[in-house]
């Protein structure tokens, strides 16, 4: 199941976790990404926490936690290859989160709704 947030994150349900990245639209708006600061594994977050910093050639942006829960994994490879976010944003995941509310992902936009938002 693939869902989208208003902040242009994609959320993919995998078992009882959610994998989070940013959309192609977001990566194009950011421009070339040159630095990514990721949260630490094991961190408990609440929805809306700014937990990822993305620096592009243009500006710094924050990525927020889409849902509350625990960060179970982070994609440390991005630190050395931040440009992967531009090259293949759907593959360049940032972190996995185990949501406190297992149904939390249900409320987000589906692909059709997200497409309508960005077009």
């Amino acid at each position: 199941m693939l869902k989208y947030t208003d902040d242009h994150e994609w959320l993919r349900a995998e078992g009882d976790e959610i994998v989070v990245g940013i959309t192609k639209h977001a990566s194009e708006q950011l421009g070339d990404v040159v630095f990514i600061e990721l949260p630490e594994e094991g961190t408990d977050v609440i929805a809306g926490d700014e937990i990822v910093v993305i620096e592009s050639v243009k500006a710094a942006s924050d990525i927020t936690a889409p849902v509350g829960g625990t960060i179970t994994a982070v994609n440390t490879a991005l630190a050395d290859a931040p440009g992967d976010v531009n090259a293949d944003p759907m593959a360049a995941w940032f972190f996995r989160i185990k949501p406190a509310d297992p149904a939390a992902i249900e409320g987000f936009m589906d692909e059709a709704a997200y497409k309508a938002l960005v077009d």
């Binding site: 421009g31 070339d32 040159v34 050639v57 243009k58 440009g83 531009n86």
Partner: peptide, 12 residues
């Protein structure tokens, strides 16, 4: 123009 489709990094 702040950038063209090539992007800031590649333009540079």
């Amino acid at each position: 123009p702040v950038q063209f489709p090539m992007g800031v990094m590649n333009e540079h």
